[in-house]
Computed example of a mutant assay.
Amino acid sequence: MSKRRKNILITGGNFTNQGAYLMLCAAAEQIRSRWGAQPVIAMQTGSERAKRWVGLDSLLEFPKLRIRVWGGNPERLSGLRHRMPFVVGSEIDAVFDVSGFVFSDEWAHLDLRRRADDLIRWSDRGVPVVLLPQAFGPLEQVTEPVADLLDSCELVYARDPDSARFLKGAARSRSAYEKIAVATDFTTALAPEEPRGLSHLRGMVPIVPNWNIAKRAAARGGSKDDYMRNLQEIVRVLRAHDYEVYGLCHEGGGDADLLHTLAGTCGGMPVIEGLDGRQSKWLLGQAPFIVSGRFHALVSALSQGVPGLVHGWSHKYKWLSEEYDVSGLVMDPYENPNSVDTFLSRRLEEIQRIRESVSELAIMKKAETEQMWDDIEKRIEL
Rank of each mutant, 00 (worst) to 15 (best):
R159Q: 09
V98C: 12
K179A: 08
L60E: 05
S99C: 14
P74D: 13
E244H: 12
L198T: 01
R220C: 05
L60D: 09
Q279L: 03
I351S: 06
D225I: 09
F186D: 04
S47L: 10
E244M: 10
R76H: 13
L56H: 12
A171Y: 14
D93W: 11
F136H: 02
R4D: 15
V129A: 02
P209A: 11
P192A: 14
T265S: 07
W211L: 03
D225H: 02
P63A: 09
E61F: 05
F186A: 02
G71H: 15
G71C: 12
D225G: 00
V299P: 00
A135F: 13
S33D: 15
S90I: 07
P333S: 13
W122M: 01
A50W: 13
R229V: 01
Q44A: 11
E381S: 12
H109A: 14
K179P: 01
H296V: 08
G72F: 15
D276I: 01
D226P: 00
R220K: 14
W35G: 06
K215V: 03
R66V: 02
M364V: 11
H315T: 05
T187V: 13
C266L: 09
W35I: 11
A158N: 06
W313D: 01
E140C: 04
G12Q: 05
S327C: 13
Q30G: 05
L198Q: 02
R113V: 06
T187G: 00
W70G: 00
G222F: 07
R66G: 01
V98S: 08
G268P: 07
F101D: 01
